[in-house]
Nucleic acid binder design. Structure first.
Length: 421
RNA sequence: GUGGCUGUAGCUCAACAGGUUAGAGCUCUGGACUGUGGCUCCAGCGGUUGGGGGUUCGAGUCCCCUCAGCCACCCCA
């Protein structure tokens, strides 16, 4: 039996309601904040991600779905949402638009990873990017939008983890400081950390190894070595968040996995016990555009996992059931009535009414049972008797009452009933 | 990529210490009620016990491999 590739899922009609629910909220909030939706290709030139995400990262090193097309070009299934949007901004000359340009997206993301609950090889993200403005008030807006989304869909008990990792002016010095500190303790570090020290020192702060925790605690903080400009930027961000009554937790170990981040970095975590997977995260990436084009474009954005939002809603017991749309079931008896029924159903559908009927000859009992199962509100019952009189029985399936209605009144009556539903 | 747990109808689960044709509930279909749903009762459909190999007279049950899901790690969404 063939099945979905590992780490991928079918989204069935019954599960669609939850997706629509969160997607509708996301789109409404984006509209309120002035973010326009953008769609970029599912695959891009492999170099886009190599240059922006960073050669030393897990994504580029071992998680990308990369392939050569028939023309010999190396393409990669989108492993994250930001780089393609920045690419589109540059490609379409959006620097001529009023800045910042605020874009939102709903996109599939692909990463070759070992699957687990809430961790898939193809997952989906809501994301937002504000491009062309470096003011920290934009950072605050982006964070507010994300938390607004979580609040509106009903997620509670979340914590905003916040940090600033500096920029080109001060980060190199910090990394030097951090490396120097760690080099003095090399002998006591785990093997992984010894590698990090060489390859990606910032990630030393991410280590979960017990024996490394004391070093993380004692290590110099990024916040302690920010340059004046970054310090002021972070200060404005904090004050802006406070102005919106947004609580945050300063987390000096939060450095994010991708190389392109500068200054602001943040994640939102579910409150649940143990180390949970982040619901969403993002940050500022003022150096990213340079890797793609000739222009410097400051930017800030977030990505948040749709499957994880829904998973957490379910864990909170907030499964959203689909509303059953107004519907009519046309039950017929006999060949003549069946033909009449096909015409009636067709007419109702042209009017936008959900109309259903059986595809083969079945007992009236079976047809009404199916009408109930399909969630129809009304049944139209037509047999030879009704056909002769030019009438049909209109049955209210909730109240179990029915009346004889003129054929010509049927559709208008149902339209009226739908309006009142 | 590492370690561990799990895997029986569409769903939720049974099946003594290996022993005849692997059961039940729900769902679906039909009937009791030849033109009136939901309740009840009856019946039917539905499984190469995730897949492959091995041990054995005999494997859902034991062993190996493999696939998938889950948990922890890794990492993040």
């Amino acid at each position: 039996m063939l099945q979905t590739p590992r780490g991928t899922n079918d989204l069935l009609p019954a599960e669609q309601a939850a997706w629509d629910y969160v997607s509708d909220h996301f789109r409404a909030i984006c509209a309120a904040y002035g973010y326009g939706e953008i769609r970029t290709p599912v695959f891009e030139d492999t170099r886009l991600f190599q240059r922006t995400v960073g050669e030393g990262t897990d994504i580029v090193e071992k998680e990308m779905y990369t392939f050569f097309d028939r023309g010999g070009d190396s393409l990669t299934l989108r492993p994250e949402g930001t780089a393609p949007v920045v690419r589109a901004y540059l490609e379409h000359g959006m620097h001529r638009l009023p800045q910042p340009v605020k874009l939102s997206y709903i996109a599939s993301i692909f990463r070759y990873d070992r699957p687990q609950a809430g961790r898939l090889r193809q997952h989906h993200q809501f994301g937002v990017e504000a491009l062309g403005e470096s003011a920290a008030t934009v950072d605050a807006e982006v964070i507010a939008l994300l938390l607004h989304l979580y609040r509106n869909v009903g997620l509670t008990g979340l914590s905003l983890q916040l940090n600033s990792i500096g920029d080109a002016a001060c980060r190199p010095q910090y990394i030097e400081e951090l490396s120097a500190y760690y080099r003095s303790h090399t002998h006591a570090l785990c093997e992984n950390c010894r590698n990090r020290l060489e390859r990606n020192p910032l990630r030393l702060l991410d280590c979960k190894e017990d024996s490394c925790q004391p070093f993380i605690h004692a290590a110099p903080h990024t916040l302690g070595s920010l340059c004046a400009a970054c310090d002021a930027h972070f200060d404005t961000l904090k004050r802006s968040l406070e102005a919106m009554d947004i609580d945050y937790t300063l987390n000096h170990t939060l450095v994010r996995g991708l190389d392109y981040y500068t200054r602001t970095v943040f994640e939102v975590w579910p409150e649940a016990v143990g180390r949970q997977s982040a619901l969403g995260g993002g940050g500022r990436y003022d150096g990213l555009a340079r890797h793609i084009g000739k222009r410097d474009v400051p930017g800030i954005g977030f990505g948040t996992g749709i499957e994880r939002i829904i998973l957490n809603l379910e864990r909170q017991g907030l499964a959203s059931a689909a509303d059953v749309p107004f519907g009519v079931y046309v039950a017929t008896l006999g060949d003549n009535a069946a033909r009449y029924g096909i015409g009636l159903v067709n007419d109702l559908r042209q009017r936008g009414i959900r109309a259903l009927m059986t595809y083969k000859s079945r007992s009236l009992k079976a047809q009404l049972r199916q009408a109930g199962n399909l969630g129809a509100h009304y049944a139209v019952i037509v047999g030879d008797d009704e056909l002769e009189q030019g009438k049909a029985l209109l049955r209210d399936l909730n109240s179990s009452t029915q009346e004889l209605v003129d054929d010509s009144d049927l559709a208008p009556t149902l339209e009226r009933l739908r309006a009142g539903n």
